[in-house]
Nucleic acid binder design. Structure first.
Lengths: 345, 345
DNA sequence: CTGTTAGCGCCTTCAA
DNA sequence: TTGAAGGCGCTAACAG
């Protein structure tokens, strides 16, 4: 049941009248090879377009130079942007990436985790999914703990209680605070919060920072002004709908991400509310959508490049058995656009 | 320089008092194993959370169950949407995907191609990049021809003269025709064409079908109405700018993709033109942007799911040495939204 | 049904 | 500087 033949170092060795070891040496440069032979080998490598079998190399060397990336949905600009940077950084360090979309499905996520380990990836970057659950099931936690015994894993913007993993996170809390400061500075005192999902930690954390900061600043907040039906544009539309007919509508809303902000803006405008005239809106993630969707959405940028760089550095450090700091916080910044303005009614 | 230990079938075998072959048998189910032993093995596998080394398996079996995907930029919704479907289809057939973003750089693209082959992927899906060049360099062509000697490759929406690869393409030509029919039906007779890049086949083909169909239908077209500065939102803005101050502005424009359409709409509106009132706009790719960007962009859908399914089926068929049709055309359809309307000035 | 053996393709001691 | 030999972890004959 063996399949295609393929040129090997043995074939090259034979034709070049040297030993396989010698071919290996010119291939890896691990030792000098004298000139008449060296050229013959090189010529044959070129002739056959010989590409060494990395699986065989990896088997011996016990390192695959592959990194796994597990995330919920590459379709979301936040993930596609971060993936691109992660891949770029990995490439620079000689790693190839295995991308795994769990499609929001925990069993696929687990299957991928096992698969990556079986495939001998040297490390894994984990985004979203179970590490974003405020209360993950015991099974999910156990799966992660097991995985960590096999391979270094770095969490991006997530955590799991009782799981001792290295984490890189963007400072979402300060992002929320900055947005509120901005709005307060514009004279807004009544502010709502839209999108996200209860039980997902990035939502839960934002909510708690939001409430805390509102209180701190003496701003006004009502239960009616918070709705969390998801992370999609549709969720933004739905959540915004609740506010439209309220007598005591907030004058501004914080949205969990740019998708939600866009949905909210669409819905507000559909019902005749001006954004930002009648209601100011902020996004989160600062994806290209925030830039281009009218009127331009003020949003919090994750510093994608720094985030990815730190993540890969940490992971590669762990692979090399170097001590790494347990948690790194990447500062965020607000990109101001036209979806917020002075409140002057 | 050997690294982490790791449990192997030998370890399991020893502790279970059986031979490694027996462990392998319970692992793969390739033969029956009697009960007392079988349970002991299973228990140990469970105890150690043993995961077989796929590289070793692959080395012997000469199949990695990995597919490579090479594309220019995962950030573009067209690519992220198609990748998601490709991955889903691959997963269903037991394959894991290696994603490679060439970042529009031909040498990275080539490096990835070599890398994938070295890593023994069983097949490659190739999108964009060199297979979209109307006149690729000899080097790029040679690189592809060499790669094809090593592994099956399926092109998606591309081709290379002199390179005998299997191709799956969406019927972009009929997409363009349908859009023009739609516009003509709405009474538009003067139509422009924005975005894309000369020398890139998907642009070149659309241009040629456009010109042909315009002529066929007796519609009016001027050199001034065609601009091709790229595939981005910015390109759309730039290209649209050229039309704004024209006395004989077209009443509708076809845009190369949704990004360009969005850029064009932004720009038109910025200069006080109503879309679709003063000028109708169409997109291409039918990404989620087309749905959500006001006023909703009429666009051509690639039938992503079918496209991905056919692609993976063909690739997997080739891997199994089954005959496959050389070229498959996936029908497109137009999703009508509000960016086009009756011309009535 | 089970153990022994050989080998997938490569790399690296160890001697020469 | 070079070759011979062994082994990375696994699977599939081949005997028993």
């Amino acid at each position: 049941m063996l399949k295609k033949d393929g040129v090997t170092i043995y074939r090259i060795a034979k034709e070049a009248n040297v030993s396989p070891a010698t071919v290996s040496r010119v291939l890896t440069g691990s030792a000098n090879v004298r000139e008449p032979a060296k050229s013959r080998v090189l010529a044959l490598i070129n002739k056959y377009n010989f590409k060494p079998n990395v699986m065989a190399q990896s088997l011996y060397l016990k390192q695959s130079k592959m990194l796994g990336i597990i995330l919920p949905d590459i379709d979301h600009p936040f993930y596609s942007m971060i993936v691109k940077e992660l891949e770029r950084q990995a490439l620079e360090k000689g790693y190839t990436c295995l991308l795994c979309n769990s499609m929001q499905n925990f069993s696929i996520e687990q299957a991928y985790l096992d698969n990556l380990i079986s495939r001998q990836v040297d490390g894994i970057v984990f985004l979203g999914g179970r590490i974003n659950q405020t209360h993950p099931t015991e099974e999910l936690r156990a799966g992660m703990i097991d995985a960590l015994k096999h391979v270094p894993i770095v969490f991006v913007n997530g955590k799991m209680e009782g799981v001792d993993a290295h984490t890189i996170r963007t400072d979402e809390a300060s992002g929320v605070r900055r947005l509120l400061e901005l709005l307060a500075h514009h004279g807004h005192r009544e502010i709502g919060l839209l999108g996200g999902e209860v039980g997902v930690s990035s939502t839960d954390e934002k909510v708690s920072v939001f409430l805390e900061t509102m209180k701190e600043k003496g701003l006004i907040f009502k239960e009616d002004w918070i709705h969390s039906s998801g992370y999609s544009i549709e969720a933004g539309e739905k959540d915004a709908t609740h506010l439209i007919h309220l007598d005591d509508r907030p004058t501004a809303v914080l949205c969990m991400n740019d998708f939600v902000a866009i949905g909210a803006i669409k819905r507000f405008r559909k019902f005749g509310l001006k954004v930002p005239g009648d209601i100011s809106v902020t996004g989160f993630d600062d994806t290209y959508l925030a830039e281009h969707f009218p009127p331009g959405v003020t949003s919090v940028n994750h510093n994608y490049q720094k985030l990815a760089k730190k993540t890969i550095e940490t992971l590669v450090g762990l692979i090399a058995h170097e001590e790494q700091q347990k948690e790194a916080i990447i500062p965020t910044y607000v990109t101001v656009r036209n979806s917020c303005e002075e409140w002057q009614h």
